[in-house]
Design a protein around this nucleic acid. Structure first.
Lengths: 193, 193, 193, 193
DNA sequence: AATGAATGAGCCTTCATTCAT
DNA sequence: AATGAATGAAGGCTCATTCAT
């Protein structure tokens, strides 16, 4: 008898396996076979559910971005103070789920992917815009609109830079230190006025 | 036309072609054939002079890093004031030769490469250490040793982050804006004292 | 037609094709593509089932040696007399299945292969040891242990030599004549006592 | 100034290097580049003097066969007794110059080469015929013409077989033992009458 | 729902060979 | 006399993808 409702299970397993494999390989030079094996299924099944390698990779990307989006949204609930909202956003970006070695690897590689895939580029732009918008709003009560935009831009660049630098390390990512660097930046920017 | 002493000419041409091709492709998924064709030679010749694809890519990386190193060194000559030296270092990192679309692409991909190649990782670490050391020294007259180190770290992360974000853009890189973001950071950090 | 359980079928076909191709080419300079085409499949499938060219060649070798081993074992069943067992062993080595043009070619090339492949060398040594052991036992009732060993060595060299010389010929191998030469040797050695 | 008379020197060096390289590689899968490097010249020069790889290999073969021919001829001078001439021929085949590891390797590979090259096959047939003729004549005083032919055939097969078996060994070739095996065969054949 | 079977396309790499100097 | 420069051709191998079951 055919098992029912396997599709979501398989999709999730394959997406997870893709992210793991990207991290294990260190690049997007992963084979569908490797991902499928890691997920415990045949490579044919990966194609069956995702249509092709491209789509599977994009799905993994989308998954990661959605996770981050939900995390930020959740952590902002009930936080009223602007400065605190900024910290919450930063903390969300470096939370254990987001700042693990696997995710960092995947993130870096998605930036590469975006250089050759319109869909991947679109996804990253959506994420960047959302981050910028969130930060600008939170900073609105502390700075002028223009200054808020500028500082938000700086925070964004800094977060990406910290991710990039951690991609090089072989040690386990140090979230506290990462947060400190960015928070330090915010403190000075907000404080000087 | 001379038939001797072609080696350095070919090597340079192939390295240039490799960087161009990486940018054109947007990833390290470039074939030796593509690079060779771009350089106007056969793929066999590329192997003859470099031994293999890996070595060619690494050579391109090394070339870019050396160029940057020389640029920084040159621009620092005669600059005595610490704050000015910091600016010179930042400016060098965003000079037209370094901050072109091709180089940015290549740079991003080298970070990926470093995740799977010890030699590539080593090269990037050398670059990071050198940048950090240069900045720390320059900041030494303005801040305490510990603070200098911390700010240098922040500047480094910021530069990388700005590069990363520009890798996404399709427009021509805006060096002035990039420099402004980083300089802004430095100003506040140094000025707050 | 069944679509499952193709593996053993393909493996057998590829091994057979490899032996044929080695004979057709006259050397081990055979391409996986040639072998695969002869077997009616793609070269990719040959890699899929054997992992690589090396392994395919070794598998063909192993196949031939196993065939010979089985043949000898089968032909010795029920043969009690020592002298008759010697003859049976010799006859087995020159039986139509073993002494065909294809097999002779392959044999010669395996000796070459053994000079650069530990596994191939191991296989040939196993065969040589088994032949020597069989012969020594059979000769045990006719000669002293030392003499039996010596004669067994001679028979082995002779069999190999006859194979080698037939590798040069373009005519169909003459088993009767080959057997006569070796038997003649045995007769004198055993009879002279 | 152009060096004169280099041709014979280079040819000899290249032929020697070819034989060494065949032994080092264990097969005919040697590159012209390897041989040339071993001879201390460029691969282009090898082509200049020999026309191509094929011709160089054949020249190496011809060289070895000629050496053996001369050796036999020289060692037979003044030996009148038939039995002694047989021993001299056998001894020549296992003399240090002929029975070194390099030569054995080359020999085996030439047999392979002969399967795909008419010229190589012709050379080996010439050698076999000469050996057979020499032996038959020498045996003429001891056996009937038919028996002499038969025994000569056996000796030839044996010599080849011994060579073949030594090709497998990694130890230094044992000429004394090799000669003993063949001489033993001759003794019995001649003695029984 | 899932997979074994199979392949075409493509890439890296090697190498014999040619040619101008 | 000798070689550096250069290439075309070919082979081993990988992999995404398709298909029949």
């Amino acid at each position: 008898m055919p098992k029912l409702g396997m599709e979501p299970i398989r999709r999730r397993a394959l997406i997870g396996a893709a992210i793991e494999q990207i991290h294990a390989t260190g690049s997007l030079d992963v084979t569908v076979g490797q991902i499928a094996r890691r997920a415990g299924v045949s490579s044919a099944l990966a194609h069956h559910y995702f249509g092709g390698k491209e789509d599977l990779i994009i799905a993994a990307m989308r998954h990661l971005l959605r996770e981050l989006g939900h995390k930020v949204k959740r952590d902002l609930v009930g936080v009223a103070d602007g400065r605190c909202r900024v910290s919450a956003i930063i903390a969300a970006n470096f939370s254990p789920e987001q700042f693990g070695a696997e995710t960092i690897s995947a993130w870096l590689n998605f930036y590469v992917k975006a250089q050759g895939s319109v869909e991947a580029a679109r996804l990253l732009r959506v994420y960047a815009r959302r981050l910028h918008s969130n930060l600008t709003h939170a900073l609105g009560s502390l700075l002028s609109k223009n200054e808020a935009r500028r500082v938000a831009e700086g925070i964004g660049a800094m977060i990406d830079g910290v991710y990039l630098r951690h991609a090089l390390r072989t040690t386990v990512p140090n979230a506290a230190q990462a947060i400190a660097i960015v928070e330090d930046f915010v403190n000075v920017q907000v404080g000087r006025k």
